[in-house]
Design a protein around this nucleic acid. Structure first.
Lengths: 216, 216
DNA sequence: ACCTGAACACCGTTCAAGT
DNA sequence: ACCTGAACACCGTTCAAGT
């Protein structure tokens, strides 16, 4: 009784790929907290126990969905290192914003991630290295860029349309600097803020490279 | 029947402060995933329903614990803006590393946070403003520093002793840049990485300020 | 004002048993 | 090899009822 034979009749055998694809679809439909082993099973017309034949646990499922999502990230083949870097990180942001649950998977920073995830990470680290930074600094600089990218997604996803109180009410809140510089996280601002974050880090990298050896 | 009168006898009345303090203690003892309304109730010798008289829900409890934890963060009273900034962020890192569940609360970036949390945020934004950056850029630069701080805690807390495979096994993994630049997240490395992340952003800020008007 | 018991509507995971 | 039902050991939250 192979899956293929089954698929010819009305009773298709579930594959690991089916489970992951359905998981991704569920993530898109019901959001972060809606993804449940039981709900996923129901969407596949089976019981929760069945899923555990195809994936070890919920965490492995999320790692697999992340990997599948990153398949579409394709680095540009030409251009200066910083433009290519920003381009790839922008693609990552788009992918992660659509499936915010995956941010937590990436934060855990284990290295038993899928091949697509590692491919993207490898690409990014390579582009940072192209800056001319000393070898020991490459991973550290990569981490800063990575943090800003995941941070942007985290901030914009949890509370869309999130304006700092003094802007909304027009009255001061008693926190002078917050009132003045308005660190809200509404979508329009996060677009600018993401680009700015990457830019300021890239400027910092360029300054170090230009200085020849690391200052301060 | 006031709380004070009760406390004189053996039957002290529970206060909101008691619940929050016990919550913080539980967080320290059992870690992120161990903090449960039911477990917290048990630690206080009562049932879960009782807690809901003192806090609206679990989220409000975590916001309150975060705020209480940040009470100890005290900005240095003198020194150049960048040294003070790094000092405060380092204190934040220490507090958050002890209670990693709170990182998620901060990422959600709502503004109905406690007074201590807003005080620390206000201080940090003020210090960034002291750099001389144009007003519109202050919140953006703050966000980059904030991201690296929370990112560092996230990465080091989820998987302590997390070395990239090629370092552990001595064999290449097929990802050339990852193999070469070894982006592991073990504690010793995260110490350096945190400082580096802040440094590279501060250098970027300084470069912008020096340039007079923002480049690129 | 403050607390309680009991319930509602869920979770992730395991495991013996089926085909 | 793959699936199932039923159970285990939990969750957060609500609510009528008690003192």
């Amino acid at each position: 009784m192979t899956g293929a034979a089954d698929r010819i009749r009305g009773r298709p055998t579930l594959t690991r790929g089916d489970v992951i694809a359905a998981g991704a679809r569920l993530l898109d439909e019901v959001g972060v907290e809606g993804v449940t082993m039981r709900r996923l099973a129901a969407a596949l017309g089976t019981g929760p126990a069945t899923l555990y034949w195809h994936v070890r646990d919920k965490d492995e499922l999320l790692v697999a969905i992340l990997d599948d999502s990153l398949r579409d990230v394709v680095p540009p083949s030409a251009g200066p290192w910083d433009r290519r870097l920003v381009d790839v990180l922008q693609q990552c942001r788009v992918v992660l914003r659509a499936r915010p649950a995956l941010v937590l998977v990436l934060w855990s920073a284990r290295w038993d991630l899928g091949p697509q995830t590692l491919r993207v990470a490898d690409t990014l680290v390579g582009l940072v290295a192209d800056s001319g930074l000393p070898d020991v600094e490459v991973a550290d600089a990569y981490f800063a860029l990575f943090s800003v990218t995941l941070g942007t997604v985290s901030a914009e996803v949890h509370t869309p349309g999130n304006v700092y109180p003094s802007e909304a009410t027009g009255t001061a809140t008693g926190y002078a600097h917050l009132d003045r510089y308005a660190p809200g996280t509404d979508p329009a601002r996060m677009d600018r803020r993401f680009d700015y974050g990457l830019r300021v880090i890239i400027d910092g990298i360029a300054a170090r490279v230009a200085a020849g050896s690391p200052p301060g």
